[in-house]
Design a protein around this nucleic acid. Structure first.
Lengths: 144, 144
DNA sequence: CCGAGGTGCTGGACTCCGTCTAATTCTCCG
DNA sequence: CGGAGAATTAGACGGAGTCCAGCACCTCGG
């Protein structure tokens, strides 16, 4: 199969390439395509969803690349992993400090602006550890 | 293989049987054995760990039964599912309102008494939903 | 005592998300 | 150009959890 990593005909890609570079990530065709999907709007997508979206018109990235890329983005703080469902991880393109509603009936994830949750200061951490993130998940179910 | 659901030679089992009945669960040999493991002390075990503990001396319960039982216990509020690691679910025998530290380096889970985390009142829930639980997870990593 | 029906348990096959591997392609720079 | 190192790929693999068809055991009525 022929590849064309170097052709970036969409000006949009340039912005994404800059964004990636700004986070210390070498931009590639696959990475910019995935970044565009993620940053099209604030949303919560699973790896499987991203895999199918990125390849819906023509094959762009393999499963391994999607997983690698999402891990890389999360590692560099571009996106945030949200673990609420044991069966899959969601990736959140909103990295502002915020929390989540999770509807256990529908599997839907919604943001909560952090001002709407008053969380006091952190308790003393266990010996020899440093903070790596705070997740607040409010699980809800349909009342109907 | 011969079964003996009805023989409960350990007085301990009686307590567990009562506990199960009090939560509307029919006590069986497998269920009381699993309950004893869970409630021996406050702890966080995965389904796989429980499976191997319950069968370490002699075969007591199959994988399917362990999963069914843990789901049943969680459904009836005897234990609490803790979802912090995408690769497995932990079951927490402490159902008091509390939160968790999760060490991402070691995979260790620790309780935080709820008094040590000041969490204001819930934000307005999404339309047509009712609360189903609040999880606060403070992720830490080794600073060494 | 017998048989029927209901609940619970079982092992083994199966699914699904995610990871690994070995081989290929791309990029970059001397 | 040419070679080293990074990125990507297809497909095999792994592990947690689910499903299913059949068996074991309990209860109850006759």
């Amino acid at each position: 199969m022929k590849k064309d990593h170097q052709h970036s005909e969409f000006p949009h890609n340039v912005d994404m390439a800059e964004l990636l570079r700004a986070h210390g990530i070498t931009p590639t065709h696959q990475r910019t395509e995935i970044a565009q999907i993620l940053f099209a709007k604030p949303q919560h997508l699973s790896a499987e969803q991203i895999l199918s979206i990125v390849n819906q018109d023509k094959p762009v990235a393999s499963k391994a690349t999607v997983y690698n890329t999402l891990g890389l983005f999360a590692e560099h703080g571009l996106i945030r992993e949200v673990i609420v469902d044991p069966s899959k991880v969601f990736y959140d393109s909103n990295t502002c400090n915020h929390h989540h509603f999770y509807n256990v009936d529908t599997g839907t994830l919604m943001d909560i602006e952090c001002e709407r949750v008053s969380l006091g200061e952190l308790p003393t951490l266990p010996e020899g550890t440093e903070p790596a993130g705070v997740d607040v998940i409010i699980r809800v179910r349909n009342s109907g």
